[in-house]
Amino acid sequence: MLDEKRVRLMTQMASYEETDGRKMIPVTTWFRSDYVGFNMVKSALSITIVYVLVVGTYIFCNVEKYIADFYKTDFMSLLRRFLSIYAVVTIAYLLVAFLLYTYRYNKARKSVRTYQRALSLLLTMYHMNE
């Protein structure tokens, strides 16, 4: 015998799984620190590639100047400058990433909580039928 109330609840849950839940449910399978940390590692990797591309282009454009002034150029101070800019840019970028991914995790938890409540209700319905 079909339980109309149960079918309705299952339909709502399946609909959530197909729409918002598709992105939200996987997020909540992580611990907050793991999720934020993993995404920050990805962000650090992205910004490093971007920085290497930018610095690479800068060096490529000025390579003739550096070759001409090879003995006059203080390469150590140049390297220090590149590294300090990299540190500042990366820290700023990671701060934004930290805030964003923490917000996204909290939002996902909030969204999935309703789904989990529906799941418990569904289990109760099954137990009552038994």
């Binding site: 990805k42 962000s43 910004i47 591309l53 930018v54 970028y93």
Partner: peptide
């Protein structure tokens, strides 16, 4: 590539 890596994500 820069736009994709730095902003789109």
């Amino acid at each position: 590539i820069i736009l994709f890596l730095a902003f789109f994500r």
